[in-house]
Amino acid sequence: MSIINITKNNFDSEVLKSDGVVILDFWATWCGPCRTLGPILESFSNKNSNVKVGKVNVDEESELAGKFEIMSIPTLIIFKNGEPINKSVGLVSESKIAELIK
């Protein structure tokens, strides 16, 4: 499954009204660890077609970043059936991402 760009306009339909697991990656273009995490998430997404992965650019979507009190990036927030169930701050491995969604 390809990674979706999440904005305030599609947040409700892609995340809150989504059945199953959604991983949101809060990131920015200038953030080194965020750029490192990108290919890790891409690989995870390709291997886990049942999990939706979305990216939120904190510079473009400050309202969403504020709503979830994002203080450091990258931050991953795991949603299940529209509810946040887990959170991870900083660069993580693919195996750690798999642990987060359990």
Rank of each mutant, 00 (worst) to 15 (best):
S18T: 01
I23R: 04
T75G: 04
I85A: 10
S18I: 04
D59H: 03
V21D: 08
V15I: 04
V15P: 06
T75V: 01
I97K: 03
A28P: 00
P33M: 11
I40G: 06
F79S: 06
S18D: 01
I85D: 01
V56P: 13
T29D: 14
I97A: 10
V58I: 15
W30N: 06
P74M: 05
L24G: 10
R35M: 14
E83I: 14
I23P: 02
I4N: 00
P84Q: 08
V51P: 00
M1R: 08
E42S: 09
T75K: 09
E99H: 06
N5Y: 11
G38A: 13
L37W: 08
I6K: 05
E60F: 04
M71H: 08
K8Y: 10
F68V: 05
E60P: 02
F44G: 03
S62L: 07
L37G: 03
V89G: 07
L91V: 06
I85Y: 04
I78P: 02
K55W: 07
V15D: 01
V58G: 05
G66K: 04
F26N: 00
E94V: 10
D12L: 02
F79E: 05
V92L: 09
V89A: 01
T36Q: 09
K80M: 02
G82V: 02
E83S: 14
S95I: 11
S95K: 10
N48K: 10
K87P: 03
E63T: 02
S49A: 12
G32F: 05
I78S: 04
I6A: 06
C31K: 07
E69V: 05
L37Q: 15
K87V: 14
T75R: 10
V51C: 11
S13R: 01
I3M: 13
L91G: 12
